[in-house]
Design a binder for these strands. Structure first.
Length: 427
RNA sequence: GGAAGGGUGGCCGAGUGGUUUAAGGCGCCGCUCUCGAAAAGCGGUGCGCCUGAAAGGGCGCCGCGGGUUCGAAUCCCGCCCCUUCCGCCA
């Protein structure tokens, strides 16, 4: 959420940003509401001031029945006026907030212009796609033949985009999560196992709602929703709090299942476990002071940590600087890491590194008291450390052997009891 | 799922309709005193919005949201959270 004062002072900038981000928001309507609300509130405040004066006058009138009754009669009049005005005030507040929640963030100057994901800019490419001296297979064939994946029964149980991992694939998944969790925790991030079911305010705070609400599973009986990332829960953690500057930055590494409806992706990635409704993810999260330079620095650092993980898993990858149209509403800037997927002959997204300035913090009401005593909104950032299914795809496809087994990268072996290969030869 | 109790400022805690513009204490900050510290004394100590060049002024906030009333921390309704007991349960 942007500061309403900022929008008042920079309406043309905000309109331009909305246009470039392909986001529909009526800035003029928003400003009209703001004007209306301020006028209404001023009027209501005056009435309340009058009410307070009369209230004291009634109290002080004591036994003077006549004066007292006069003040009470006046009070009734003021109360009646307020009763008309207050619902109007509340409506305006709600409408304004609704529009504010739809207003996108201001992108950084280093964000590339563009019309779609095709205009994302490759920042770097690391590692060479492996030259296979045999015909490489896709992850579905590999895992199914190793007896580690059952998509048919997965769909039978959970519907489309469901899967069942079996045997060593289960340990592989846990090993990947363990490895990522430890790698990030060693750098001073506090591990968190957060609720995967969260209340609405967490989603609004994080910017999943109101736009994107249809991507989230709702549990209406219990007034909670399934999180698509631990980021949602972590944003909710400090909602409504005023933190101490000396406690910043707060660095978390969250672990959670992730649930995504994938609404509107019918034709996309129908094969295998590239796009599924449930997976597990280790997520990096930072809360820092309201300072652009610091945010930008942590953004780069979060990228570096994620790259270390990808490098340790010996996966070829590239880094994209997301263009303004592909950035989503909330981000100031975002990098995606895409790992090489041999069966597709292209790079696929595995990580998403973002910073938000105070956009999430305003929505979630997360502030801190500076050493100077001034209370400000914090800055928030997050990046994937590792997401289970896409990591599995990249790992098994890139490290497959001619005999059908999967070579386990050295860094991951401690988490798999020292094992060098996954599965038994079948080719 | 059932029953009971509770939620007040950074913390403890008083407060059951109008001298509460939230008592008192602790903590914190400043000052006085002191070689310095402690103690003591004095003063200060929240967040948000509106208005104003500023000083200042106004409004709101006692878990959250409604309601009753001239007036609500206080009464009523709904919700959230915590504690205890019973039941169920990995």
């Amino acid at each position: 959420m942007l500061d309403i004062a900022f929008i008042r002072e920079n309406p043309e900038l905000v309109k331009d940003v909305a246009r470039r981000r392909k986001t529909a928001v009526d800035v003029d309507a928003l400003l009209a509401l703001d004007n209306d609300l301020r006028a209404t509130r001023r009027h209501a405040d005056d009435l309340r001031a009058e009410q307070n004066r009369l209230s004291k006058a009634i109290r002080d009138a004591g036994a003077d029945k006549e004066a007292r009754d006069g003040f009470i009669a006046q009070g009734r009049g003021v109360a009646a006026e307020l009763k008309d005005l207050e619902p109007r005030e509340r409506e305006l507040e709600a409408s304004l907030r609704e529009l504010l929640l739809l207003t996108p963030n201001i992108p950084d100057a280093s964000v590339p212009e563009g019309e779609s994901e095709d205009d994302n800019v490759e920042v770097k490419r690391v590692g060479e796609p492996r030259q296979f001296d045999f015909e490489p297979l896709d992850h579905v064939t590999l895992l199914t033949n190793l007896g580690m994946l059952d998509l048919e029964r997965g769909a039978k149980v959970g519907g489309s985009r469901s899967y069942i991992l079996k045997g060593e694939a289960v340990f592989l998944e846990l090993a990947l999560m363990q490895f990522a969790l430890h790698h990030v925790a060693r750098k001073g991030f506090l591990p968190l196992d957060v609720p995967a079911m969260a209340r609405e305010f967490c989603f609004i705070g994080n910017s999943q709602f109101p736009r994107g609400r249809e991507q989230t599973y709702a549990l209406p009986e219990d007034d909670v929703f399934l999180v698509g990332t631990a980021e949602v829960s972590i944003t909710g953690m400090h909602s409504g709090e005023i933190l101490r500057e000396q406690d910043l930055p707060i660095k978390y590494v969250g672990y959670s299942p992730c649930y995504r409806r994938e609404a509107g992706t019918y034709g996309k990635d129908t094969k295998g476990i590239m796009r599924v409704h449930q997976f597990y993810k280790v997520e990096q999260y930072i809360i820092c002071r309201a300072d652009h330079e610091e945010s930008a620095r942590w953004h780069e650092e979060l990228l570096r940590v994620a790259e270390e993980i990808v490098v340790a898993l010996e996966l070829p990858y590239r880094v994209l600087n997301l263009c303004v149209a592909d950035l989503g509403d909330a981000k100031v800037k975002g990098y995606d890491i895409e790992c090489w997927v041999p069966s597709e002959g292209r790079y696929r997204e595995t990580h998403s590194d973002s910073y938000f300035h105070d956009y999430q913090a305003r929505r979630a009401d997360i502030r801190y008291r500076g050493e100077d005593g001034v209370v400000r909104y914090v800055h928030t950032l997050n990046n994937t450390a590792l997401a289970s299914t896409r990591a599995i795809i990249a790992l098994v496809e890139n490290h497959q052997q001619a005999d059908g087994r999967i070579r386990i990268p050295t860094a991951l072996r401690p988490w798999l009891g020292g094992q060098e290969y996954l599965g038994k030869a079948w080719r």
